[in-house]
Write a protein that binds this DNA or RNA. Structure first.
Lengths: 143, 143
DNA sequence: TCTTGACTTAAAGTGCACTCGAAGGTGTTT
DNA sequence: AAACACCTTCGAGTGCACTTTAAGTCAAGA
């Protein structure tokens, strides 16, 4: 009694992973994902494929580009010998994303100050004469 | 004895703000920045303009699009009555960027786990049989 | 039987933000 | 005089990641 694994055709799978069928075929063309085919040539996917797409989306989510993803997939196909390379790719993606966050936070800080400055102007706790640039200097004292 | 303000022509200004002269003219076309002109029609910029471009770059840095930037500039031109609207725009930009950071961090966490998993495979502290998916479950116990 | 959803290839379109080039002109510097 | 940096309009090109269309085929389900 072999329990057959649940199969999803492209439409259902697309909904599950939150991509369009177009995109799924596009990713397949690009070699990012592989699909299985039934006797009529119709694509189907399994739970494993859901997890793989999920992981791809995590990588994409950190800003990794399709080309790098392709490369990662190729390396994976080459077996365990490429683990150090893949690890390095992930580390780089991680470092890059962390740098992005740091930059984002820096911009965010200025935005926050500008919002505070607007508030100060509106409730008159900041002098009309004080420009945002002057106001910002207040936070630069320690630099 | 009026100290005249330091003027920068587009080439020098471009270097100062880290944009190309092309981009600067493009931004001007889009209404994001204004330039002053000398008697020959040659653009020049001042310190104030450096600060303004800097601020624009902070907004862009949080992911704000040209169209929204345009709108912000328009509102600014309409005077203090639009401060609440502008404040709201900044708040939204801030909220959006914070959401982006949160998402990024989520992706980052998975990446981190995958890196650890690779390390575990390499030094055999993780069983060969344990898939990354299984491994990830370890961190899901509290959910 | 008809609709629905799948299949194919190949090409074109979309959106965003630049980025560049052509072609001809002006003014300053070497 | 030549080089250089600037000016104009405006249209085309770039890069990325999709997104859509065309045109025709196939098979299962109501």
């Amino acid at each position: 009694m072999v329990e057959s694994v649940r199969h999803y055709r492209i439409g259902e799978f697309a909904q599950l992973v939150g991509l369009s069928t177009y995109t799924l075929r596009y990713y397949e063309d690009q070699g990012l994902i592989k699909s299985h085919r039934d006797e009529n040539g119709v694509r189907y996917y399994t739970e494993r494929d859901i997890r793989w797409v999920g992981f791809i989306l995590h990588l994409k989510g950190t800003g990794m580009r399709i080309n790098d993803l392709k490369r990662y997939v190729q390396l994976r196909a080459e077996g365990d010998a490429t683990i150090p390379t893949r690890r390095a790719m992930l580390q780089k993606a991680k470092d890059d994303a962390e740098a992005d966050i740091a930059e984002l936070q820096m911009h965010l800080q200025v935005l926050g100050h500008k919002i505070d400055w607007y508030d100060g102007k509106v409730d008159h706790t900041i002098a009309d004469s004080e420009s945002f640039h002057d106001y910002l200097q207040r936070f630069n004292d320690d630099k």
